[in-house]
């Protein structure tokens, strides 16, 4: 590839330092927390996901839900007050992953480091995993990809027609010790990436101290992504 380098090698030392994963255990289980107090629903994480992974128009691996009446609209809560929170949602990389269980051909599978992966060359496009996923984070390639740019973008190859795709935890970046793109690009620091098995690490500590929550815990999927609840307000 005439003088090409990996996008990580192309970074200046300062930029590269920003993305380094940092401390981890000997046998990492990758995961993430999303801080609902810091999240401002800006979709930077969703947009960079599209860009990093060349996700075509109409598909989103990562999206930001509004806990409200409509996009960026509050809801009336008890006592007539208004409230609004944002809930960024991508693959939760469940330890007990319904999608993995149901896939007839093991096209979606677990890596030892906790990442739920997708094998586009094996997927037969039955979409049973989409039925099974309680979070609705899987996208099917219904037609050939449409892009706003005339050329393919991003850092991974496009997925074939008729297969399912979803968040890979930017596995292509992890190999080079770089956090996922959505974590890099969150302007408020609402996303923290790390190793669940690294008990002293920032991820585990945040989950412990701020009582990280599971999305749809009752589904028993045991997500590798946790949510930090908004702070208590201190009204006048």
């Amino acid at each position: 590839m005439g003088g090409k380098v990996s996008p990580v090698e192309a970074l200046s030392p300062a930029s590269r330092a920003w993305g380094e994963i940092g401390s981890r255990s000997s046998d990492p289980h990758w995961g993430m927390v999303v801080d609902q107090e810091r999240c401002i629903g800006c979709w930077s994480c969703a947009v960079i996901c599209k860009s990093e992974n060349d996700v075509p128009l109409g598909m989103w691996w990562n999206r930001i839900l509004t806990e409200g009446e409509a996009l960026d609209q509050p809801e009336v809560v008890r006592g007539g007050a208004l409230e609004m929170h944002w809930l960024p949602l991508a693959c939760q990389h469940c330890e007990n992953a319904p999608c993995v269980k149901v896939c007839p051909v093991q096209a979606t599978y677990h890596r030892r480091d906790g990442i739920v992966m997708q094998d586009s060359d094996r997927c037969i496009g039955c979409r049973y995993c989409m039925i099974a996923c309680p979070y609705g984070v899987r996208n099917f390639n219904w037609g050939s990809p449409a892009r706003p740019t005339p050329h393919e973008t991003g850092m991974v190859p496009a997925r074939p027609l008729g297969t399912v795709e979803k968040c890979t935890l930017c596995v292509q970046r992890l190999a080079e010790d770089q956090v996922p793109s959505c974590v890099w690009s969150c302007p408020t620091g609402a996303r923290v990436f790390g190793d669940h098995n690294d008990a002293g690490g920032r991820l585990a500590t945040l989950i412990r101290e701020r009582e990280g929550e599971d999305l749809l815990e009752e589904a028993g999927t045991r997500p590798s992504v946790r949510y930090l609840p908004p702070r208590r307000r201190n009204p006048l």
Partner: peptide, 16 residues
Amino acid sequence: AGAPGVTSLVNGGRDF
């Protein structure tokens, strides 16, 4: 910290 362990057997050796 909820240190997890993946339960699924489904990975067909396609680890990394």
